[in-house]
Amino acid sequence: MSASRLVKEFSKGLWREIPPFRLVLGLCPALAVTTTAENGLGMGISATFVLVCSNGLISLLRKVIPNEVRVACYIVIIATFVVCVEMITKAYFFELSESLGLFIPLIVVNCIILGRAEAFAKKNGVLLSRADGLGMGLGFTLALTGLGAIREFFGAGTLGLVFGEQVFFDQPFAFLQQAPGAFVALGLLLGLMNLVGGSRGR
């Protein structure tokens, strides 16, 4: 296993297969929690933590887990880490756990995580699987933070993550903060990604 392979598996999640744009997975949190950049970042980090841990452990146990019950084992492992995140945010990041609410336990059914276990971790070594998980997780974090920043900046006129309390517009385009705005913003962003990606001759 060479270093370049490691870099390749890590970096594919950041652009070539970035979720939820290129791999259309994990849409629910991408739409629901991205009202602010901060929430997007929090969700992204939580999901990355679960993804790296579960990918690593599943890869470590890949020779022990019987093929017939592998999905059940994956779900138990993933759910364990999700419950850990749930408890840690409740104890140490209370405000984040309040604003993400239901979507922290729902990381367990985030298709990206089970998807990476099935598509990658069960066939590859621990280090590679971790790199894959970290790359995918960071890509997801990047996407959520970006989408959150756009919706917060244009929809509420603030950007709390960078500028604190500062308000940029008095009359923001509040549509973007609402549910329909989330769908439209994600759809258009996806188009934009394809436009940029397309010109590179994908």
């Binding site: 329909p180 769908f183 759809g187 394809n194």
Partner: peptide, 20 residues
């Protein structure tokens, strides 16, 4: 449909209008 938003892209925008 413009090629860039074919499939999922236009699907999301439509879902937004339905939500509206």
């Amino acid at each position: 449909v413009p090629k860039q938003i074919e499939g999922t892209g236009i699907g999301l925008v439509t879902a937004g209008l339905l939500a509206l």
